[in-house]
């Protein structure tokens, strides 16, 4: 029998290598955060770019998710004669799960891809190399501000998403289907706990923001400097971000409940 141990399949090996490289990249970014504070204007610019510029899609989607949720839950609750609980169920769903998760998925699609494409093109056109040649650390100037922007923007966007979602459910439940306005709000405020529901949701969105921004920056930074390489990198950003967000949501929910 051969003493040589079989090599693991390359897909698993490559995936583990990617995870390892991404972890090391995170450490590099965290180490560069103090230096990146010198470029605070760049961080603010990135918060504007990833956060404020994502507001339209976040608000629109939040409104419609809330409206659909209101409609579906009103129908289900009416079977049991419990339509008064509509505000409670909608708000708990939004604060705990839908707000952070759907915002993260939208954020990956809108801001994550643009971060990856931008950094990938900077790599392809030697802008990253030019910064290194000008003795400017690209991790501190390019990667860290975008990572910080993701961490800052995501919880804010999730809050906006939640607000619009609840407004959408109110629009359908109260204005359209005739549920009592006072019942909707009073049941909601009496059953939603700020720390257990709202703050835990915010923590989730902070974690999702960090994960999506890290994946987006890492994919852009390590992309092959070609058009095809940038295209693949943006696709990987959406795919990996979606999988990791949903998996991390399960883990965090299990720990936070």
């Amino acid at each position: 029998m051969s003493a040589v141990r079989p090599k693991p399949p390359s897909m698993i090996g490559d995936a583990l290598a990617q995870v390892g490289a991404c972890g090391l990249f995170l450490l590099q970014i965290l180490a560069a955060v103090p230096r990146s504070l010198r470029h605070i204007r760049e961080t603010v610019r990135q918060v504007w770019f990833t956060g404020a510029m994502s507001l339209v899609i976040i608000m629109t989607c939040g409104l419609f998710v809330g409206m659909v949720l209101g409609l579906q839950l009103y129908y289900v609750l009416s079977i049991f004669g419990g339509t008064a609980a509509l505000g409670t169920v909608v708000s708990l769903s939004m604060y705990r799960e839908l707000g952070p998760v759907v915002t993260a998925l939208l954020f990956a699609g809108r801001a994550g891809t643009s971060i990856t494409a931008e950094i990938g093109l900077m790599r392809a056109t030697d802008q990253i190399a030019a910064m290194e040649m000008m003795a400017v650390d690209p991790i501190a100037y390019v990667a860290a501000p975008r990572f910080l922007a993701g961490v800052i923007a995501m919880p804010l966007l999730a809050c906006v998403f939640n607000a619009l979602g609840i407004f959408g459910a109110h629009l359908v439940g109260v204005s359209w289907l005739g549920l009592d306005n006072g019942t909707f709000w009073s049941n909601m405020t009496s059953s939603v706990d700020v720390w257990k529901d709202v703050v835990n949701g915010v923590w989730k969105s902070v974690a999702f923001g960090a994960v999506v921004a890290l994946i987006a920056v890492f994919q852009g930074y390590t992309t092959a400097p070609t058009s095809e390489g940038v295209a693949y990198a943006t696709t990987r950003t959406v795919v990996f971000s979606s999988i990791v967000v949903l998996a991390l949501d399960f883990v965090m929910t299990a720990f936070l409940m």
Binding site: T125, Q127, A130, M133, A135, V136
Partner: peptide
């Protein structure tokens, strides 16, 4: 590298910045 100037084959200008800001960058 702070003492070295490097002219890249493809110029490698920072596309988000104007000509002035590119030269002022270092």
């Amino acid at each position: 590298r702070e003492k070295i100037g490097y002219l890249f084959q493809n110029s490698a200008l920072l596309t988000d910045f104007s000509v002035f800001e590119n030269v002022a960058f270092p």
